[in-house]
Write a protein that binds this DNA or RNA. Structure first.
Length: 464
RNA sequence: UCCUCGAUAGCUCAACGGUAGAGCAACCGGCUGUUAACCGGUAGGUUGCAGGUUCGAAUCCUGCUCGGGGAGCCA
């Protein structure tokens, strides 16, 4: 008797035909009749379940098997039979069904449709559903694809620090990391909390971005990327924001904004093609039950050229569109979500890079353009999700960078090491950040970020 | 944080001022190939919490808590 995984059976069913096999998994459903019944068993190795046929005249404990409930863990032994005429390609004629772990009748995952909201409340069990099984397998595959893409192109993976003392970056509200007694912190003479007595001897936070550290390594390895957790303590309550998420941040030296965009486009297409090729069952499921036509959408994008438009061009285009927007379009103001959606969904109907934003609405480290008014920034907008990538060419000129920091009220002494990168062998360089979860959302069609993170952390929510 | 909608059986919903119901799940039974199985039956409720109006509140009003959608911030 050979112990087999459903994935093996799917890949090589002919080899197992009419052989005795043993599978182990969890019952999704049990349909019993007078003298026979059917179990749908999922063993976690494949999206599909395997159908187990059990018969009264074969099993001495038929009545007991007929009562097994959804959620129970079982070992099944029997003969693998090919069933070319049936809905499923093969099934097991059971000779033995052993209950490994019972599941009482209050098991929350019923063989019926559940809302995503309900399943979030049972996040420890939701991976056993079709939807979340598919989502989290795609998440795993996508992470692998990210590493493969960069490693194959000679990028070095940098583990940027998760705890940081860079509080000058301004990418968002930060979570403080401390070992001080919250009730009774040490105070300075002036009555303020004395962080000098904290664990690190100074204020420390969870990272909001590994970019600054990635820049340091890009100026040593030329091509690097980070891929790790990121934390934002923003009070944002949307389907696209979480307090803990993962970000991919490549950084390339001797490169400008156009090199940066070429890399971003190549990466997005690689990731899409990888998932289409390696998660066919999952993508078929998303296509049918989550977002109709998602596979065609992705295939089309992987084969198309991404659009490009400057911020100034986008503002003109939006103004001349005749479209009524809730918020007016005005040069110097950031594009609203409705503007971005109009551009990527109505005007271009595909991913679009928007470049060269006014310097006032972008970060201090973005390279100042020759017009003195805009910076070499780029956002990649995609239909349905909105901004999925944000990046820029970095300011490599010491004087300009220091001036920009002053404009943003950042003390250059706080980022002395970042300035050193310009002082010693600084070169033009560029990079971007891809929200890992937003990429998953875009590829699967799942519209809430809480449903693509195993155990999501959001404002007022840290269960599990 | 703002706008908006909502919270009723385990789940999804109905009842909209007058005895709280259905489908699915569960449980019991039927059915010789089911696959969202089907058919019959049983059980299941402090209507989110706290107040108020009323002869009478799931229903109307106020506050709170939690959730969905949208916005801001961003990835």
């Amino acid at each position: 008797m050979e112990k087999v995984l459903i994935r093996q059976l799917v890949k090589d069913m002919a080899r197992y035909a009419d052989r005795e096999v043993e599978v182990q998994g969890w019952i999704r459903s049990n349909r019993d009749q007078k003298s026979f019944g059917f179990l749908a068993v999922n063993d976690g190795t494949h999206f599909n379940t395997i159908q187990v046929v059990y018969e009264k005249e074969v099993l001495s404990d038929f009545e007991r098997v007929a009562k097994l409930r959804a959620g129970s863990a079982v070992t099944v032994r029997g003969r693998l039979v090919l069933t070319p005429k049936a809905k499923q390609p093969f099934e097991i004629k059971a000779t033995e069904v052993i209950l490994e772990g019972d599941s009482p009748e209050d098991y929350p995952i019923q063989p019926k449709r559940h809302t995503r909201e309900f399943l979030r409340e049972v996040a420890h069990l939701r991976a056993r559903t079709n939807l979340f099984n598919a989502v989290f397998r795609v998440r795993s595959l996508l992470g692998y694809a990210v590493h493969t893409f960069f490693q194959e192109r000679g990028f070095v993976n940098v583990h940027a620090p998760i705890i940081t003392a860079n509080d000058a970056e301004g990418a968002g509200e930060m979570f403080r990391v401390t070992t001080l007694d919250a009730k009774n912190p040490p105070l300075t003479g002036g009555g303020a909390v004395d962080f000098g007595q904290d664990f690190f001897g100074r204020r420390a936070n969870l990272t909001v971005s590994g970019q600054l550290e990635a820049e340091a390594f890009a100026l040593a390895f030329r091509k690097v990327y980070t891929f790790g957790p990121t934390f934002r303590a923003e009070n944002s309550n949307t389907a696209r924001h979480a307090a803990e998420f993962w970000m991919i941040e490549p950084e390339i030296a001797f490169a400008d904004l156009w090199d940066n965009m070429r890399l971003a486009e190549e990466m997005m297409k690689y990731l899409i093609n990888y998932i289409l090729a390696n998660a066919p069952e999952e993508m078929a499921f998303f296509d049918e039950f989550v977002e109709k036509g998602v596979r065609d959408k992705l295939a089309k994008i992987a084969g198309s050229k991404f659009a490009h438009i400057t911020y100034t061009g986008a503002v003109e285009l939006l103004k001349e569109s005749g479209e009524k927007f809730e918020y007016p379009v005005e040069w110097g103001k950031d594009l609203q979500t409705e503007h971005e959606r109009y551009l990527t969904e109505k005007v271009f109907d595909k991913p679009v890079f928007v470049t060269d934003y006014p310097k006032e609405i972008k970060a201090f480290y973005m390279r100042l353009n020759d017009d003195g008014k805009t910076v070499a920034a780029m956002d990649l907008l995609v239909p349905g999700v909105g901004e999925i990538i944000g990046g820029s060419q970095r300011e490599e000129r010491m004087e300009v960078l220091v001036q920009r920091m002053r404009e943003f009220h950042i003390d250059p002494r706080d980022l002395w090491w970042y300035l050193d990168l310009r002082k010693y062998g600084g070169v033009k360089h560029a990079g971007f950040g891809l929200g890992f979860e937003r990429a998953i959302m875009y590829i699967t069609g799942v519209s809430n970020i809480r449903d693509v993170i195993p155990f999501p952390r959001t404002v007022n929510y840290c269960e599990f």
